[in-house]
């Protein structure tokens, strides 16, 4: 039996889509009889001693995070920097890393850089790289339980179940787990169209002038 640590890497902490994904994984591991703990990167980076203790007790670390500016959010990078600084604390035991990246864009390639960055971090810290999955888009989860999101995330649920199953058994994550999320969960053109449509409500509420405000506009003085 191995200790699994599931971390949410979103600055939104409990309200975000990354946390919905993390919670699904946590429950999935628990159902398979694994010893699981959950934590929030935003909170644990405030307590270095506690953080070292938590990571030291884990055999497998799972991180769920949103993509910010085509990469991992800065709080996840702060966490990585911290881990590298205390690398010697984590060298006594074999540890593994798996990541769950979710993007606000509908194209799966929007998760590529962030997953590679985590792989490079795993290499730097000496963790075994179990892999990483990209969910595009993650925004339609809308902070709900993944099971309550209807048809859209059915494939994601299948993929996550396969991932937790293989990790629990100590096996390699099968290729078809990645295949479930290799295509957009919604047609990108439709996603952009409805995204714009939803924004019309905000425009009506706050007014066009406020919505399109340009507070940093400057007149060029020659």
């Amino acid at each position: 039996m191995r200790n699994i640590l599931v971390l949410t890497g979103s600055p939104k902490v409990k309200k975000g889509n990354s946390d919905s994904i993390a919670n699904f994984m946590l429950e999935s591991f628990k159902r398979k009889g694994q010893i699981c703990k959950k934590g929030y990167i935003k909170d644990i980076i405030q307590q270095p001693e506690e953080m070292i203790k938590i990571i030291k007790s884990a055999d497998i670390v799972i991180i769920s995070f949103p993509v910010y500016q085509n990469s991992v959010p800065s709080i996840v990078l702060s966490f990585f920097e911290f881990m590298i600084r205390y690398k010697s604390h984590f060298s006594q035991k074999h540890r593994s890393l798996f990541v769950l990246s979710n993007s606000g864009l509908a194209e799966p390639k929007a998760n590529v850089s962030s997953v590679f960055q985590c792989q490079l971090f795993a290499k730097s810290i000496g963790f075994y790289w179990l892999g990483g999955i990209g969910i595009a888009p993650g925004t339609l989860i809308d902070g709900k339980k993944l099971e309550d999101t209807g048809k859209t995330y059915k494939k994601v649920i299948k993929a996550l179940n396969l991932i937790s199953d293989s990790i629990s058994k100590g096996e390699k994550v099968p290729d078809h787990a990645y295949a479930y999320t290799s295509k957009p969960l919604i047609w990108p053109k439709m996603y952009r169209f409805f995204g714009k449509l939803i924004q019309n409500k905000v425009v009506k509420k706050i007014g066009k002038v406020n919505y399109y405000a340009r507070p940093y506009s400057f007149k060029v003085v020659s």
Partner: peptide, 30 residues
Amino acid sequence: FGCCNALTKHFIDRTEPLFLPFQVTKNGTS
């Protein structure tokens, strides 16, 4: 790790106010 450091990323992430909350395409990408 194929990224900038956390300090620089704090700033890059904070450029969000420079964008509108919807997407367009450029070179076939959102």
